[in-house]
Amino acid sequence: MDFTLIVVLVIVLALVFDFTNGFHDTANAMATPIATGAMRPKVAVTVAAILNLVGAFLSTAVATTISNGLINEGEGGVSITPELIFAGLIGAIVWNLITWLRGLPSSSSHALFGGLIGAAIIGVGIGAVNFDVVVTKVILPALIAPVIAGLAAFAATKIAYAVTRRDIGKPDGRGGFRYAQIFSSSLVALAHGTNDAQKTMGVITLTLIAGGFQAVGSPVQFWVIASCALAIAIGTYSGGWRIIRTMGSGLTEVKPAQGFAAETSTAAAILASSHLGFALSTTQVASGSVIGSGLGRRGSTVRWGMAGKIALGWVLTLPASAIMGAFAAGLASFGTIGIILDAVLGTIVIVGIFLWSRKERVSHNNAVNVNDIDDAGRVVKIRKTPRKPSRSDRKKVAS
């Protein structure tokens, strides 16, 4: 297969992944304000799309981590080839779509890293992967950031409820947090653009370096930034209604004050990570913030068994996508026929998932009007405080 053609195919496939990343992660920013009624569904995803587009232009530190750090350099540049990047992207996209079909808020970031790592190990060897970067820029942030965001959300929720403490006969002032959520959720969407769009920028830049079209260590080109920003914005506008339904339905018990605290903490953690070049999972940070905000509200308990299931899902994403990327890389090793087989099988799986999803269509009309409960939302359980019997109730009992 013509070398330039495979580079073009990889770039197109990377933008497809960027699109799936957009609709897969829309719920992280907009599920809560949709569930609390702060924003209408279509308005929410439109705002998220615009802010993802803007956020993608604000930084390239994460893109540099991927293009110049994740994969080790060889004699003629990076050791990975465009064919292997193609295989890694197939693994990431397939896993993203499988979790989307199931309505699971998994990490698109880890799906991408897993696919690339699996393909690199099969195609070049374990030495092709810079595990120091994987540990310091991917794994450690994945462990630390949700905890920090959760603690921040816990403290913010405590403060919010203390400041707006309810006095007898007086409103508590917490209704205003519903409108504050418009700001906080928008900030999460902006932060998502600064972090997640860059991952695709890094992959495309890595492909250009591997193909000899760009020098090692050179910055991300403007057309790469613009195309990735547009792709993730279009994906975000598409809504990802299945995951919004999953997260939004479970978050209906979360009060606006908690939602505001969780979203603000999520945005702060992601923006800080983007500045430091950490390739963070927005999903994990958002889940940590939800748990923290729930604990910050009096009368809540944590279902640690459910929290463990969420953590297990996070752990599985990296190896599952790595296995898929490795399988695709094995086929790619057969040359042109292998690339064709990868493309055909990948297309069959993608079309199959899409057709399967048509059996139960989810849109902005029914995304938050069902009784399904999101795992992250179910981690926090609010105990209902019994209502004190009124004078009329006591009279009825006496009679």
Results as ranks from 00 to 15, higher is better:
residue 64 T to P: 01
residue 64 T to Y: 04
residue 65 T to M: 04
residue 66 I to P: 03
residue 67 S to C: 13
residue 67 S to N: 13
residue 67 S to D: 13
residue 67 S to A: 15
residue 67 S to V: 12
residue 67 S to P: 14
residue 68 N to E: 14
residue 68 N to H: 15
residue 68 N to Q: 10
residue 68 N to Y: 03
residue 69 G to K: 07
residue 69 G to D: 13
residue 69 G to N: 11
residue 70 L to R: 11
residue 70 L to P: 12
residue 70 L to Y: 09
residue 71 I to P: 01
residue 72 N to R: 03
residue 72 N to A: 12
residue 72 N to K: 08
residue 73 E to F: 02
residue 73 E to G: 07
residue 73 E to L: 04
residue 74 G to H: 15
residue 74 G to F: 14
residue 74 G to T: 13
residue 74 G to M: 14
residue 75 E to Y: 00
residue 75 E to K: 10
residue 75 E to M: 07
residue 75 E to F: 04
residue 75 E to G: 06
residue 76 G to E: 08
residue 77 G to C: 15
residue 77 G to V: 14
residue 77 G to R: 15
residue 78 V to N: 07
residue 78 V to M: 09
residue 78 V to E: 04
residue 78 V to C: 07
residue 79 S to M: 13
residue 79 S to R: 05
residue 79 S to T: 14
residue 81 T to V: 06
residue 82 P to R: 03
residue 82 P to A: 01
residue 82 P to T: 02
residue 83 E to A: 14
residue 84 L to Q: 07
residue 84 L to K: 00
residue 85 I to Y: 02
residue 86 F to N: 00
residue 86 F to L: 01
residue 86 F to K: 00
residue 86 F to Q: 00
residue 87 A to P: 03
residue 87 A to E: 04
residue 87 A to R: 01
residue 87 A to Q: 02
residue 87 A to K: 02
residue 88 G to I: 02
residue 88 G to E: 00
residue 89 L to R: 04
residue 90 I to M: 13
residue 90 I to C: 08
residue 91 G to N: 10
residue 91 G to M: 08
residue 91 G to W: 11
residue 91 G to K: 13
residue 92 A to M: 06
residue 92 A to R: 04
residue 93 I to H: 13
residue 93 I to R: 10
residue 93 I to F: 12
residue 94 V to D: 06
residue 94 V to T: 14
residue 94 V to M: 12
residue 94 V to N: 07
residue 94 V to A: 12
residue 94 V to W: 09
residue 95 W to V: 10
residue 95 W to M: 11
residue 95 W to G: 09
residue 95 W to L: 15
residue 95 W to N: 07
residue 96 N to P: 08
residue 96 N to G: 15
residue 96 N to Y: 09
residue 96 N to D: 14
residue 96 N to T: 13
residue 97 L to I: 05
residue 97 L to H: 01
residue 97 L to E: 05
residue 97 L to G: 02
residue 98 I to F: 11
residue 98 I to W: 05
residue 98 I to Q: 01
residue 98 I to A: 04
residue 100 W to Q: 03
residue 100 W to H: 06
residue 100 W to F: 04
residue 100 W to V: 05
residue 101 L to W: 06
residue 102 R to Y: 12
residue 102 R to S: 09
residue 102 R to T: 11
residue 103 G to C: 10
residue 103 G to E: 12
residue 103 G to W: 08
residue 104 L to Y: 14
residue 104 L to D: 07
residue 105 P to T: 03
residue 106 S to I: 10
residue 106 S to F: 10
residue 106 S to G: 08
residue 106 S to V: 13
residue 107 S to P: 04
residue 107 S to V: 10
